[in-house]
């Protein structure tokens, strides 16, 4: 096959894929009776509704202390769940990573467990755990822990594979023990990247904690649920805004911290 033919083939393939995607979109909107145009047309209306109803008024502001205390509860929960998950994930990632695995069977089982934990959504974990632990903060903790753990194992594993194969080889060649190699060869070069994943998960978990709070009746999610049922949109707006502020603040701090240790 000549190069021109090869390139032409590639172009045709690309066109084919785009046509296929359009067909799938059209087909699925037919099946589900979803009118794309109607969806787009309703956007301005939605924005107008949000602008008039979700702006916190004076009455909503009275709820501010309550919102802040619940929000604090949520932040603490996310931070604790994320950090403990990160510590466990680090060891799993070491056993699962190609560069630092002890043996293949252990590596495979580690990756399998992490994959199961990761691929079941956090809400599903919360629903299942509510049955065993009831409507309390422990349920929220475990739901967040499990899904964070699953995600972080994968992210840490990729970080380790990328950053430390060379150092690991050198330390193994000097006659270092396994944990000397892990703590002195792998950790220093992967720490910044792993910390930024941790911060990312804390952010994500504050958002998830809101959702999980709905299910378990804890934290900011509980408050959200309460005021939603009372149709108290002003307070809802306040809650949403405060979550946004916290998430942005965490993103800001994480950037600061990362620059400091880099």
């Amino acid at each position: 096959m000549t190069t021109t033919n090869f390139l032409r083939m590639k172009k045709w393939k690309m066109t084919g894929i785009i046509i296929l995607l359009l067909a799938i979109t059209y087909g699925s909107s037919m099946i589900t009776d979803f009118d794309v145009m109607k969806g787009i047309k309703s956007i301005p209306g939605t924005i107008a509704w949000i602008a008039t109803n979700l702006i916190p008024d004076a009455a909503a502001m009275e709820n501010l202390p309550k919102v802040l205390s619940r929000l604090w509860e949520t932040i603490i929960l996310s931070v604790i769940a994320s950090t403990t998950a990160a510590v466990c994930a680090f060891f799993f990632a070491i056993f699962g990573s190609k560069t630092t695995q002890i043996n293949r069977i252990l590596a495979f089982s580690t990756r399998l467990i992490a994959s199961v934990f990761r691929n079941i959504p956090v809400v599903a974990w919360a629903l299942v755990l509510v049955i065993s632990f009831g409507h309390n903060v422990v349920t929220g903790y475990f739901a967040l822990f499990i899904s964070t753990f699953g995600t972080l194992v994968r992210m840490f594993m990729e970080t380790i594979d990328e950053a430390s194969a060379d150092g690991v080889e050198a330390l193994n060649a000097t006659g270092a023990t396994y944990f000397q190699m892990v703590f002195k060869g792998v950790l220093p070069d992967t720490m910044p990247q792993m910390l930024s994943w941790l911060f990312y998960m804390i952010e994500t978990n504050i958002r998830s904690a809101t959702l999980i709070g709905l299910l378990t009746g804890t934290g900011i999610g509980y408050l959200f649920d309460l005021h939603y049922k009372r149709l108290d949109y002003g307070t809802l707006g306040l809650i949403t805004l405060s979550i946004i502020v916290v998430v942005i603040a965490i993103e800001f701090t994480s950037n600061k911290v990362r620059r400091m240790i880099l």
């Binding site: 430390s164 060379d166 150092g167 080889e169 050198a170 060649a173 000097t174 002195k184 060869g185 220093p188 070069d189 720490m191 910044p192």
Partner: peptide
């Protein structure tokens, strides 16, 4: 052992 890519812990 000495390596082509030095294999140091760079940080």
């Amino acid at each position: 052992m000495v390596f082509q890519h030095y294999n140091l812990v760079s940080r």
